[in-house]
Amino acid sequence: MMSFSLLWFMSSLVMIICGLWGFINYHKHLLNSLLSLEFMMLGVFWLLILQISSMSKEMYFVLFFLTLVACEGALGLSLLVLIVRSHGSDYFSVINILEC
Rank of each mutant, 00 (worst) to 15 (best):
Val44Ser: 04
Leu42Lys: 10
Ser86His: 14
Phe39Pro: 00
Leu37Ile: 07
Phe45Leu: 13
Leu31Pro: 00
Leu31Tyr: 01
Leu48Arg: 08
Ile49Thr: 10
Leu79Phe: 07
Ser56Ala: 06
Glu38Ser: 06
Met59His: 15
Glu58Thr: 07
Leu82Thr: 06
Ser33Cys: 13
Met59Thr: 12
Leu35Thr: 01
Ser56Asp: 06
Ala74Arg: 07
Gly43Trp: 11
Leu75His: 08
Asn32Asp: 03
Ile52Ser: 04
Ser36Gln: 01
Glu38Pro: 00
Ile24Lys: 03
Leu34Gly: 01
Lys57Pro: 00
Val81Ser: 05
Leu77Tyr: 06
Arg85Cys: 08
Val84Lys: 13
Trp46His: 04
Phe45Lys: 15
Val62Arg: 11
Ser56Gly: 04
Ala70Cys: 15
Met55His: 11
Thr67Asn: 14
Phe64Tyr: 09
Leu37Pro: 07
Ile49Lys: 12
Leu50Asn: 12
Leu48Lys: 11
Leu48Pro: 01
Val69Glu: 05
Leu82Glu: 04
Glu58Phe: 15
Ser33Asp: 02
Phe64Asp: 04
Leu75Ser: 05
Ile24Leu: 08
Glu72Pro: 05
Phe23Pro: 04
Phe64Trp: 04
Leu30Trp: 14
Ser86Met: 15
Trp21Gly: 13
Leu63Arg: 10
Val69Arg: 02
Ser33Phe: 01
Trp46Lys: 05
Leu34Val: 00
Leu30Tyr: 12
Ser36His: 08
Met40His: 10
Ala70Ser: 05
Val84Leu: 06
Gly73Thr: 09
Glu58Tyr: 09
Ser56Val: 03
Tyr60Gly: 12
Gly73Tyr: 12
Leu80Ile: 02
Leu68Ile: 02
Phe64Ala: 02
Trp46Met: 03
Leu47Arg: 02
Arg85Trp: 06
His27Glu: 03
Phe23Leu: 14
Val84Gln: 11
Phe39Gly: 03
Met41Gly: 12
Gln51Ser: 07
Cys71Gly: 01
Arg85Gly: 07
Leu79Met: 10
Met41Cys: 09
Tyr26Gly: 04
Ile24Pro: 15
Leu82Ala: 07
Leu50Trp: 08
Asn25Leu: 13
Leu30Glu: 10
Leu30Asp: 09
Trp21Lys: 08
Phe64Gln: 04
Thr67Cys: 14
Gly22Arg: 00
His87Pro: 00
Met55Thr: 12
Ala74Asn: 04
Met55Val: 11
Phe65His: 02
Leu47Ile: 01
Leu75Asp: 03
Glu72Gln: 05
His27Arg: 12
Leu34Trp: 05
Leu30Phe: 08
Tyr60Ser: 15
Leu35Gly: 01
Met41Lys: 09
Trp46Cys: 01
Ser78Met: 04
Gly22Asn: 03
Asn32His: 06
Gly76Met: 07
Leu80Thr: 05
Glu72Leu: 02
Gly88Glu: 13
Ala70Arg: 08
Val81Gln: 02
Ala70Gln: 12
